[in-house]
Simulated scan of single mutants.
Amino acid sequence: MRRITHAVAALAMAAAALTTTGAGEALADDWAGCPSGAVCVYPQDQDPAVSPSDVYWSYGAHRLSNQYGNHWVLDNQTGGAHARLCRGSGGTDCVYDIAAQRGVYYDLGPVNSITLDRP
C-alpha cells in the first residue's frame, strides 16, 4: 500500500511540473469537462465528475434551481478567483467557499445560489 501511495504522489508531482510555465504559474486546462475559467456543477450523484450540467462564467451571483442531493462543484477559475455556495438566492448566507482549482461534493438541496468572486 505504501508503494502505491508513493507512486501516486510521484505522478501528481510530475503532472504538476508539466502544467507550470517557466515563471512557475499553473496553466489552467479543462478539468473533468469544466472549461478553464469557469465554475461547473455536475448532475446529481455523478461521481466522479465527468460532464457538467451547468457552467458559469461571469462574476456575481447565479441562482440555482432544481438542484437536490449531492453534486460535484468544480472551481476551474484562474487567478485565484473563488466560488461560494449560498443559501440565499442572491449570493447571501454563503455556507461554503471553494478556492480556484478545487472542488467539493456537496448537497445542493439547501443551496439557492452560487457566486463567482474576483480575487
Rank of each mutant, 00 (worst) to 15 (best):
R2F: 13
R2A: 09
R2V: 08
A7L: 15
A9C: 10
L11Q: 14
L11I: 15
A16E: 02
T19D: 08
G22E: 09
G22W: 06
A23W: 04
G24K: 01
L27C: 02
A28W: 00
A32R: 13
G33F: 10
A38R: 05
Y42Q: 00
Q44H: 07
Q46I: 05
D47V: 09
D47Q: 09
V55Q: 11
W57R: 08
S58I: 04
Y59G: 10
L64R: 04
L64A: 02
N66K: 11
Y68F: 10
G69A: 09
H71T: 06
H71F: 01
W72L: 00
W72H: 13
V73N: 03
L74D: 09
D75N: 15
H82A: 12
H82G: 06
A83P: 03
L85R: 07
C86D: 04
S89D: 07
S89Y: 11
G91K: 00
T92E: 06
D93Y: 07
Y96R: 15
I98N: 05
A100Y: 08
A100N: 14
R102W: 04
Y106F: 12
Y106G: 03
L108R: 08
G109Q: 08
N112R: 13
S113I: 02
I114A: 07
D117Q: 15
D117W: 02
R118F: 12
